[in-house]
Amino acid sequence: MPKTAASSSPIVEIRDLDFCYGPVQALHAVNLAIPARQVTALIGPSGCGKSTLLRCLNRMNDLIEGARVVRGSIRIHGIDIHAPEVDVIELRKHVGMVFQKSNPFPKSIYENIAYGLRLQGVRDRARLDAVVEQSLRGAALWDEVKDRLHQSALGLSGGQQQRLCIARTIAVEPEIILMDEPCSALDPVATAKIEELIQELRARYSIVIVTHNMQQAARCSDQTAFFYLGRLIEHAPTRDIFTNPANSQTEAYVSGRFG
């Protein structure tokens, strides 16, 4: 692994971001720096804009009609991702995403993992095999599925499907992984496994995770950002947010008094 800059140096910088869905403004002047090789949790009550922000980072919001950045910028490695010379396809390869509801393709496990590489035109069987194994190991799924790689992914359990989606994401070697409430549809055991996996992944990837679950944010993130009504209220190391929040709204939320 190449040497990296100091862990505190930001990989994503969000400046003065205003974001609208048609006439409705979803984000107001958000300023946030997301550090590399750390887990950043976005928390807040429903509709506070945290998922919107997440989907801005790989421009999945482009797909929604009327959704647009009104003001401000998002820079990854200093490059404005909304600049015309940025290719959204390349961006998405670089910024992977795991969804709330696991969404494996109705294909075999192997083909699910190989999908991203095949898109890029990789045909080399040996290379595909290697990446599939590597990614499944990376997602801590290899031992469970290595004997049935060519069976349908829809036969896996919910937790396994979600880890498969993570494996599928890391197969294309992103630098950043976005997770949109990845455990909300899972039982506690599966959730624990995913959280464990997140801990392992942070060594290599910068992870941004949206979660409703305060304990989850506390357990597995390094940084936490609290959103309320489309505004970033507070951003600090997780320990500080949960033990010593600077803002009273944050305190009310993390202590469970609203939301």
Binding site: I76, I79, D87, E173
Partner: peptide, 16 residues
């Protein structure tokens, strides 16, 4: 593995 030094390449448009 992600390689930060290749970033300009990663984000540049290269389409036919």
């Amino acid at each position: 593995m992600p390689a930060p030094d290749s970033r300009p390449h990663l984000l540049a448009r290269r389409r036919l």
